[in-house]
């Protein structure tokens, strides 16, 4: 029924002497949610940065939408349809909320001014206000500088930005890390809603109940290896934790 959107096989990556990724594998269908889990330093962020064009893989193959891809820059990944909420959020603290949301794809004025690169600040403000309302994000004023926001609010900005622009795949690297109970629940709702709109999500978190709640599939990384690919409906909290800690493994050695 649904087609394979993303197939990752044998991906590895090292930084000098540190081999962050050794062998990452999984397969994901369109509109599915993948929970990507693993202990600190397992390689989750490194892996998604390969998908988002920040890092280049050393070996392995990534097939996206039927094509082999190897993004050499974030813009290639974005163009292909990936949006990423980075663990460090990747915001510009001196810029207002609305500028951050439109960073790199500023709305331009109509006519000759637009051709000269004049930005349409009011247009951007209105659009961001609308989306903040739609996503029920706890952000008061679109002109507020991101550097003055609370940690959770900053996370909201990054998530909202990804959702606004998300075309095919949205990657969220620990999107609920700085969020309270209520806000976390909102993010989980957003993930479910994205899924309903046919958007594929890669969801990284250390909070297993969250992962189990939203994921269709779970990929467990340990020391740079994929040690398990699980069907979320058929696994349990305990089983996932055993894979994460190394008490169990689907691979040899």
């Amino acid at each position: 029924m649904s087609k394979v959107l993303l197939k990752v096989s044998g991906v590895s990556k090292s930084f000098g002497h540190v081999q962050a990724l050794k062998d990452v594998n999984f397969e994901l269908n369109e509109g599915e949610v993948l929970g990507l889990v693993g202990d600190n330093g397992a390689g989750k962020s490194t892996f998604i940065k390969i998908l988002s064009g920040v890092h280049r893989k050393d070996k392995g193959e990534i097939i996206f939408d039927g094509d082999t891809v190897d993004f050499s820059s974030p813009s290639e990944s974005i163009e292909a349809g990936f949006e990423t909420v980075y663990q460090d959020l990747a915001l510009a603290p001196d810029l207002p909320i609305y500028s951050n949301m439109f960073l790199g794809r500023e709305m331009l004025r109509k006519g000759i001014l637009g051709k000269l690169g004049f930005v349409d600040k009011d247009g951007m403000r209105k659009s961001v206000e609308k989306n903040i309302k739609k996503l029920k994000a706890t952000l008061n004023h679109v002109d507020q500088e991101v550097g003055t926001l609370s940690g959770g609010q900053r996370q909201s900005v990054a998530i909202t930005r990804a959702v606004i622009w998300g075309k095919k795949v949205i990657i969220m690297d620990e999107p609920t890390a700085a969020l309270g109970v209520e806000e976390s629940a909102k993010v989980l709702e957003i993930v479910k809603e994205l899924k309903q709109h046919g958007i594929t999500v890669i969801f990284i978190s250390h909070t297993m109940p969250h992962v189990l709640e939203v994921s269709d599939k779970i990929c467990v990384l340990r020391l740079g290896f994929t040690v398990a690919n699980l069907n979320a409906a058929e696994t349990t909290y305990e089983e996932v934790v055993e894979y994460i800690t190394g008490a169990r493994s689907q691979i040899e050695g």
């Binding site: 988002s52 974030p74 990944s77 974005i78 990747a90 510009a92 500028s99 960073l103 930005v119």
Partner: peptide
């Protein structure tokens, strides 16, 4: 805008596809 963004956080600006 990009000039300010770069000065504010060059890595974030690059990751925005600029």
């Amino acid at each position: 805008v990009i000039t300010y963004a770069y000065g504010s956080n060059p890595e974030s600006t690059a990751r925005a596809g600029i």
